[in-house]
Structure formats: structure tokens, C-alpha cells
Design a binder for these strands. Structure first.
Length: 316
DNA sequence: AAGACGAAAGTGGTTGA
DNA sequence: TCAACAACTTTCGTCTT
């Protein structure tokens, strides 16, 4: 399990060297959260955390003998998956019937145990919210560590009383949206909203409340983060993606990316890269994949060509 | 005919009073 | 809360390949 402090600085910057081919063009798979080399396809898994046991077992008996713990701890279950329960049968560990005073004591313990778990409004709220979180994130295909982050964000906002007066659903949607941005696999807010029953305005409001209410560092969605996703929709080749990333880096140095829709920048960079690398797509195809209009692609592409002094060979 | 281009009017979000 | 503003979208006619 990761906490937020760990994940903040842990994303791949695109500067890592591939062990397979020696080139430094890693990209992130937006659905699986994997880091993949765009040249040789090597999947770098060293950053993924295995939350399973460190031992191996081949039979059920072996497993029983070696297990020292219950299921892994996770933030996505209301009680983090580590709560205890008191059995409803009046028998002890050896199966003997419990009688008399002991039985009365157990009744009382069970009663208060259950009350303490469910009758706190925050716990009830968490239960509903974590259900919704699971539903929403599996609908969207969000990787597990992003879900954990989303769960953490929700918990923080709940304890800071930010959920009060807002619907649970809208805060869950906002948490997922922010967690995706933190992990640098941004999803458009609209895409998340379509999977929920709340309207866009409410989710947007919740996002703002969370960002100002709890101390989290949410990077702005950048064009570079969108490249893997858009380019895989367009089935572009590795060298085109690499070129587009270079173009975006140059554009950032010249400060022409500020205040512009990242989708437009990413699309324009891919369009230019496509022409330069003879791996061309039409403006319409790119506009669709990067979720902006052709006009925006055109404006950004004109601007990039002008600012970066790229010469386009029109004859191709 | 498809794709690229650009003008003009309209829309939603941000910012500052 | 409201107006001003920049960026983006929609629509549409024209040009290029």
C-alpha cells in the first residue's frame, strides 16, 4: 500500500533508460499503470508494489500453516479490511456451546461491537462511499494504486468535514478525478461524470473544495501525460511518439503551453510529429482522439510551427 | 471527394472588482 | 455576484491535394 507522500514524487518523468534497448523513452500505460518502453516494448515493473505474501505455498494446508495475517490492508474498504467480527454462533473455538454468564457477556460485547462499527455516521458514510468508489473505478478501468489514492483523498475530505452538504457520489467522483491527475494519467472530468448520476457542476465544485480543503499537491494536467493515451488510440509508431514528446518539451521551454488546453497541445504535437516522421494522421482523427476540435489542433499546430521554427515539408 | 484552412459568432470557465 | 476576458467550439464557405 502506498500513501500519498510516496506517490507524489514517484511518477516516471520519461527520462529513464530502458534496460532492453538502452534508449530513454519510457511511457506509461494509462489503463494498467505500467511503464513501457516505446522502442522495444519492455515493461518495467520495478515500481509496482506487490501486496501479496513473500512466501509461496502449493497446497491449502501449506497456505494455512504459513499465513500469519488476514487479507491485505487496503484503503478502499471502509474499515481498511482489518476489522474483527464476533461470530453469531454461541460456540467457542473448539466448537463447544457457551453457556450461562459467558453467553450473556458475549451478547453484550457483540451488541456494542456492532454498534461501534456501524452506528458512527462517518463509518456508514465510508461504507457507501467505498462501494461507489469501487463501482466507479472499475467502470473507468482505473488501476489499483490510483484507487487507493482516491480512497485516501476521500477519507481526508470526510474527516475534514468536506463531504457535508455535498452528495457522497460527487465527492467520490472528484476523488477519482484528482487521484488520476496525481498519478499523471489524467481523465477528462466529463468522462468520469458520464459514469455517475451527479451533474458536472457538483463534481467540479467538490474538486475545488477538496483541493483547497486538504493539503494535496495536484499537478496540472500536462500535454505530455496525454501522449500515451492519445497515441495508442491512433496506433502511432514509437518514433512518432518520441518526436511529439520532444516537441512538447521544446514548447514548454518557450512557455507557449501555459493556459492552453493540454489536449490541443498534445494533438498538435502528434500531428506535427506524424508529418515529420511520415506516420501521418488527419486533423480530424487527432482531434477526436485528443478530445478537442480540429480548429484547436490547427491553431496550436500553427502556433507550435511558428514558435519552434519547424519547417514542414508539404510535398509529402 | 477528402482534407486543410480561416473567419465569425457562440459557449463555459477564470479572474478581479 | 457580476462583468470582462481569453481560450475553445461550432458552423460554414473556400482552397488545395
Amino acid at each position: 500500500m502506498k500513501n500519498l507522500a510516496d506517490t507524489k514524487g514517484a511518477h516516471i518523468t520519461g527520462k529513464e533508460v530502458c534496460m532492453g534497448c538502452g534508449q530513454n523513452i519510457f511511457t506509461e500505460d494509462y489503463t494498467r499503470g505500467e511503464h513501457t518502453c516505446t522502442v522495444c516494448g519492455l515493461v518495467a515493473s520495478e515500481r509496482t508494489v506487490d501486496s501479496g505474501p513473500e512466501w509461496r505455498a502449493f497446497t491449502a494446508e501449506e497456505r494455512n500453516a504459513r499465513a500469519r495475517t488476514g487479507s491485505p490492508m487496503t484503503l478502499t474498504i471502509a474499515d481498511k479490511g482489518i476489522s474483527t467480527t464476533i461470530d453469531w454462533r454461541n460456540r467457542d473455538a473448539n466448537g463447544r456451546v457457551i453457556g450461562g454468564n459467558t453467553r450473556a457477556a458475549i451478547y453484550r460485547m457483540r451488541k456494542w461491537h456492532i454498534r461501534s462499527m456501524l452506528h458512527s455516521s462517518q463509518h456508514r458514510n465510508l461504507g457507501i462511499a467505498m462501494n461507489e468508489l469501487q463501482r466507479l473505478s472499475s467502470q473507468l478501468g482505473v488501476p489499483r494504486d490510483v484507487r487507493e489514492t482516491a480512497a485516501l483523498i476521500y477519507r481526508k475530505s470526510l474527516f475534514k468535514k468536506l463531504v457535508r452538504g455535498r452528495s457522497i457520489e460527487s465527492v467520490v467522483a472528484a476523488s477519482v478525478y484528482l487521484a488520476c491527475r496525481i498519478h499523471r494519467i489524467p481523465r477528462p472530468l466529463d468522462e468520469i461524470v458520464t459514469e455517475t448520476n451527479v451533474d458536472r457542476k457538483q463534481v467540479g465544485h467538490s474538486v475545488r473544495r477538496i483541493v483547497s480543503g486538504i493539503s494535496i499537491n495536484v499537478p496540472l494536467p500536462s500535454a505530455k501525460d496525454l501522449i500515451p493515451r492519445v497515441s495508442s488510440d491512433l496506433m502511432l509508431e514509437g518514433r512518432t511518439i518520441k518526436k511529439a514528446t520532444e516537441i512538447i518539451n521544446q514548447a514548454k521551454e518557450k512557455y507557449v503551453t501555459i493556459g492552453k488546453a493540454p489536449g490541443g497541445i498534445a494533438g498538435a504535437a502528434l500531428y506535427i510529429a506524424g508529418i515529420l516522421e511520415e506516420d501521418r494522421r488527419t486533423q480530424r482523427e487527432i482531434a477526436q482522439a485528443s478530445r478537442v476540435t480540429e480548429v484547436t489542433i490547427r491553431n496550436r499546430y500553427k502556433e507550435l510551427v511558428r514558435v519552434l521554427g519547424i519547417t514542414i515539408n508539404v510535398s509529402s
